[in-house]
């Protein structure tokens, strides 16, 4: 998670994809290192909240592509994405492709058909 100060300093046009993900408070992909010492293991039966060593992008056969000219920013896709990969980005929607599973709910539910499922 990122502090409020850092978010304030950066304007939206300067942000890279990673920074936008950080700003939206989505947990980021974390590299998993095989523990070599007993101290490397977490204290409880789990790692800390939002520890994500694996991406879900490999599940995908079709990927959603947004046509921003058609999009009316109704945020229905944002509400209904089962994985929460759709984020608001300065009046546009943006998709985190690392965790999109390509289920197609966003494209199917879009009232303007602004999202198209394209084969990877």
């Amino acid at each position: 998670m990122v502090s409020g100060k850092l978010v304030k300093r950066l304007t939206n046009d300067q942000l890279t994809n990673d920074q936008i993900i950080e700003k939206m408070s989505r947990p980021k992909h974390t590299e998993y290192k095989t523990p070599t010492h007993i101290d490397d293991y977490p204290t409880g039966p789990q790692y800390e909240a939002g520890f994500l060593p694996e991406k879900n992008a490999g599940w995908r056969t079709f990927k959603p592509v947004v046509n921003h000219d058609e999009c009316i920013y109704c945020l229905r896709c944002y509400l209904l994405c089962p994985d929460g990969t759709i984020m608001k980005d300065n009046g546009k929607i943006k998709i985190d492709m690392d965790y999109c599973k390509g289920c197609g709910v966003c494209a199917h539910e879009c009232p303007k058909d602004a999202i198209e499922m394209v084969k990877e």
């Binding site: 408070s25 989505r26 994500l52 879900n56 229905r76 509400l79 089962p82 994985d83 599973k101």
Partner: peptide, 20 residues
């Protein structure tokens, strides 16, 4: 949808695609 928090509290899970 417009005013709800942008934080995701259930993210990167392994549910089947399209899980309700």
């Amino acid at each position: 949808a417009k005013n709800m928090t942008e934080k995701e509290f259930f993210y990167g899970h392994k549910a089947c695609a399209g899980c309700g």
